[in-house]
């Protein structure tokens, strides 16, 4: 069974990705600070349905210095890592001019620095094992603007740039690197959006609705699967046509 790591896999989009990949037959390793009731129930479902399997590994991804040890432990406990889904992120919004520096720093640390360092340690083991897949969860905010999300947008744009160059770097070692850029999806992270804003986003989208978690999870599954073996260095936008 192929091992896939999903960061931030205990809730929201990450949990949806974890559920999808487990159903698709992967051994999914969810990494997050805390186990949630939803993740526990996903693990029970996984056990019962016998598709793939789902494991939880508690880890605070903002602890950059601990990442090398995390990857070493994962490899020791689970064996070769086939896939990495860099999904964990924080989503503080706020006007840049009055945003606290500590929040700016945390956004960059969790959304950019941490996935880059994690990828460093995972990708080299993928290269040593002959290949693998990396999917970075970006956001349409990385290439379109939204007031109050300048720092978040910067971190998401950084993941797209990271994806493109890393794809070129490790392609000949059999590792594909892609991004998924979701539009606004209903999760805890976007709860702060008011109904009015939500409706406006839906109205401005080609399909007149918001994408749901499962839409994004399917895109991630596709980029991990055989069907996408010739796709690397690209961004798959899942936004119901919001940026079309």
């Amino acid at each position: 069974m192929r091992n896939v790591i999903v960061t931030g896999g205990s809730r929201g989009l990450g949990l949806g990705i974890v559920r999808r990949l487990t159903e698709a037959g992967y051994r999914t390793i969810a990494i997050a600070r805390k186990e949630t009731a939803q993740l526990q129930s996903a693990m029970e479902d996984g056990e019962r349905d016998h598709h793939g399997s789902l494991r939880f590994v508690p880890f605070d991804l903002s602890r950059i210095d601990e990442i090398p040890r995390l990857v070493k432990t994962l490899r020791k406990d689970f064996g070769p890592i086939y896939g990495l889904v860099n999904n964990a992120a924080v989503g503080f919004d706020g006007v840049l001019a009055i945003m606290h520096n500590s929040q700016i720093e945390e956004l960059v640390r969790v959304n950019t620095l941490s996935p880059i360092v994690l990828t460093k340690y995972v990708v080299r083991s993928m290269m040593a094992d002959g290949g693998g897949r990396i999917v970075n969860v970006a956001s349409i905010i990385g290439f379109t603007g939204y007031s109050g999300l300048s720092v978040y947008g910067a971190t998401k744009a950084s993941m797209i740039g990271f994806t493109r160059s890393l794809a070129r770097e490790v392609g000949r070692m059999g590792v594909n690197v892609n991004s998924v850029a979701p539009g606004f999806v209903d999760t805890e992270m976007t709860q702060k959006l008011e109904d009015e804003q939500r409706q406006q986003i839906a109205r401005r989208s080609a399909l007149r609705r918001l994408p749901d978690i499962d839409d994004v999870a399917h895109a991630v599954e596709f980029l991990l699967g055989e069907q996408s073996k010739s796709i690397t260095g690209t961004v798959l936008t899942v936004d119901a046509g919001n940026t079309a």
Partner: peptide, 13 residues
């Protein structure tokens, strides 16, 4: 340099 990355990963194992 990619070869050295693989060597470092293998030596860690």
């Amino acid at each position: 340099s990619l070869c050295f990355a693989i060597i470092v990963a293998r030596l860690e194992d």
